[in-house]
C-alpha cells in the first residue's frame, strides 16, 4: 500500500504541468487533427465531415507550394547565417577586450530585447525605398535603389535580414555561456603545445561547444519555422505572397478567411513536418557530439 503511494508520488508532482500541457498543447493538437477532417468555414458554419478533402486541396494549391518554398528558404538561410554570426561574435567577445567587451556584448544583445513588433516597424522605416537609411548608405556605395519590401525578389531577404539582426544576440549569449564552460586547462595545454588562435579554435573550442551548437540549432529550427510577427508587421505576406510563410498562412486561413478546417489541416501538416525535422536532426547529430569533456 505504502509502496503504491510512493509510486504515485511523481505523478502527483507532474499534475500541474500535465494539466497545463494537456489543456494548451496536447488537446489543441488532437483537436486540430480532428477538425482537419471537416469542412468548417464560412460556407458551412457547422462542421461537415469531409475526409481528406482539405489535405487534397492543399497538395494541389499553388499558393501553398509557394508558402512552403518561402518557409524553407527562410529556414535554410537564416539558421546558418544567424548561428555563424552568433558563434563568431561569441568567440570574439570571449577574448580579453577590457571594458569594450561589455559594450559590444550589450550592443549585440540589444536587438533581442526590442519587442518584435517594434523591431518590424523599425525595419520598415530603415528599408523604405525613398527615405530609408539602408538605401541611403547603399547609395554611397553606388548600389541602385532597391525597393526592398515592395519588390518580389527582395522582400523575403529583407525579412531574413531583420530576423538575423533580431535573433543572433540571443544565440550569442548561449554560445558565450558554452564557451565559458570550457576548462581553461585545455587552452593552457594547447598553449604549451604551441597552438595558435586558429588551432585552438579548430581543435578545442569548436568540438567543445558542439553540445551548445546542437541546442542552438534545434531552438533555431523551431523558432524560424514559426516566423510570423515580422511578416505580419512588415509585409502581411506580400507582395504577391512572396513573404507568406506557413504560420502566417495558417493565420490567414483561420482569422481572415474563417476557414477553420483548412487552418487545422495546415496546422497538422506544420506540426508533423516540424517533428520529423527535429527527429532527423537529433538522430543525425547524436552520434557526432561529445557531451562530456
Amino acid at each position: 500500500m505504502r509502496r503504491n503511494l510512493r509510486a504515485l508520488t511523481p505523478y502527483v508532482y507532474l499534475v500541474p504541468s500535465l494539466v497545463l500541457l494537456g489543456a494548451f498543447t496536447y488537446y489543441p493538437i488532437l483537436r486540430s487533427l480532428y477538425v482537419s477532417f471537416f469542412d468548417w468555414n464560412l460556407f458551412s458554419p457547422r462542421p461537415v465531415y469531409a475526409g481528406l478533402a482539405n489535405y487534397r486541396y492543399l497538395l494541389q494549391d499553388p499558393t501553398f507550394h509557394l508558402v512552403l518554398r518561402n518557409t524553407l528558404v527562410y529556414v535554410a538561410v537564416t539558421i546558418p547565417v544567424t548561428m555563424a554570426l552568433a558563434l563568431i561574435t561569441a568567440v570574439l567577445l570571449n577574448e580579453r577586450l577590457g571594458w569594450l567587451r561589455d559594450v559590444y556584448r550589450v550592443a549585440a544583445f540589444y536587438p533581442t530585447m526590442v519587442p518584435m513588433a517594434a523591431a518590424g516597424m523599425l525595419w520598415v522605416l530603415l528599408l523604405n525605398p525613398s527615405i530609408g537609411l539602408v538605401n541611403h548608405y547603399l547609395g554611397y556605395l553606388g548600389v541602385r535603389r532597391i525597393d526592398w519590401l515592395y519588390d518580389m525578389n527582395w522582400a523575403l531577404p529583407a525579412i531574413m535580414l531583420a530576423s538575423v539582426w533580431k535573433n543572433y544576440g540571443y544565440f550569442m549569449l548561449i554560445y558565450l555561456a558554452g564557451l565559458q564552460n570550457i576548462p581553461s586547462s585545455l587552452y593552457e595545454a594547447a598553449d604549451i603545445e604551441g597552438a595558435g588562435f586558429w588551432h585552438k579554435l579548430r581543435y578545442v573550442t569548436l568540438p567543445l561547444v558542439a553540445p551548445t551548437t546542437v541546442f542552438v540549432f534545434v531552438v533555431a529550427i523551431i523558432s524560424s519555422f514559426q516566423v510570423f510577427d515580422l511578416v505580419y508587421v512588415m509585409t502581411q505576406g506580400g507582395p504577391g505572397d512572396r513573404t507568406n510563410v506557413l504560420v502566417y498562412f495558417i493565420y490567414q486561413y483561420a482569422f481572415r478567411f474563417g476557414d477553420w478546417g483548412m487552418a487545422s489541416a495546415l496546422t497538422v501538416l506544420f506540426v508533423a513536418g516540424l517533428l520529423v525535422v527535429i527527429l532527423l536532426v537529433m538522430r543525425m547529430v547524436e552520434r557526432r557530439v561529445h557531451y562530456e569533456v
Partner: peptide, 11 residues
C-alpha cells in the same frame, strides 16, 4: 469569403 478573392486577385 471576399478576403480570399482579394488575396488571390491581388497576387
Amino acid at each position: 469569403a471576399f478576403q480570399r478573392v482579394r488575396e488571390v486577385l491581388k497576387r
